[in-house]
Nucleic acid binder design. Sequence first.
DNA 1: AATACAACCGGGGTAAAGTCCGCTTATGCT
DNA 2: AGCATAAGCGGACTTTACCCCGGTTGTATT
Lengths: 204, 204
Amino acid sequence: MDQPVLPLGAPRGERADAVRNRLHLLATAREMLAEQGADRLTMDGLAERAGLGKGTVFRRFGSRAGIFQALLDDDERAFQERVLSGPPPLGPGAAPLERLIAYGRARVGFLVAHREIARAALDGTQPVPAGPETPLSRMHIRMLLGQMGLGAADLDVLTVQLTAALDGPLLLYLSASDLTQAADQADERLAHGWQDLVQRVCRP
Amino acid sequence: MDQPVLPLGAPRGERADAVRNRLHLLATAREMLAEQGADRLTMDGLAERAGLGKGTVFRRFGSRAGIFQALLDDDERAFQERVLSGPPPLGPGAAPLERLIAYGRARVGFLVAHREIARAALDGTQPVPAGPETPLSRMHIRMLLGQMGLGAADLDVLTVQLTAALDGPLLLYLSASDLTQAADQADERLAHGWQDLVQRVCRP
DNA sequence: AATACAACCGGGGTAAAGTCCGCTTATGCT
DNA sequence: AGCATAAGCGGACTTTACCCCGGTTGTATT
């Protein structure tokens, strides 16, 4: 006899209590984040406030950075939705170049809005793929670049470099004060700079 | 009466013993790095092996990342020399675009060769200007971009984005295995990709 | 419903980064 | 040379990320 089909939706997945705890930890982390900022969020503090053991926190998220990656991942789901199936020019339907420009603008906005979490999600001991989020960014850029037939470029390398041009300023170079003092202005300049960059890169 | 002019050359600089200790710590750090790799280099271990107190290590370098920044800075001095006053096309004398291409190639090579230190020099809690090295990279790129009169681009933003495109792959995205398995190949692809990128960006 | 098993939980334990402050020593002036 | 001062030094102390493993609880099977 075959297995019932329903429970395979989460194939041998988390146990119910584990899910409950994970969600509770994420919610608690968000509270603490809002109240005290990312750098005051300690694993002990989170565990205590959530009423759980420290071991639980680590098994769920692996590391401190893992918590922020999970939070970021969560926030990014809606964003991904808009990219994969929302209205153009961000979603499918527009010309590749337009989509690429729109994607950059949207991602810059997202990163500026989530810069604290995004920074905290960096591991340092680990290359970025730590979260399942950047792969998507790269895959998407790569796909769009592929759709417009650029000359004999090394598409993989160009993709990484453009991804870095998009994320790097926020993750690596711009100081907190550069952003907080005029977040939306920086946002606009970066978005516009991205547009200029990819237009230059992609013109025939 | 005026002060004697000589001692102002190093205005109230480091004390002699401090200099001695700093150099000794850097040398010891390099030994440990060569023997055990960056992640096994602990502050306690370094202090003990150097025969100094931990407090000394921290006052000299501020943080663990600070040590690697100092090492990187040291290694980069020769590189900077070549850029600022070496022979073209890396040094002055060649056309800006050629210099930019040469600079990217050289920096990629440098970063690939020093990737372990460079990664370890990242702080995570701090934007990159932590070391005086990236500012120079940025300034140089910015200067070269300025020399070729690009259209009405936002030069500052373009500079950060290109700097990120250059450093990001090494600092952020490429995993250790991506590089160690074929370091020179990755090196060449990145350098060539950089050339392609800036040629696209800078053509009229 | 009872059972077996795997996953999960808790919280004490370890290691390493970073801080502090009283003591020591180099430096510049007289 | 002797002194005043500021810089430097050391190492104990605190904090925090991360590990471990015995006991517990959810889940699938009969």
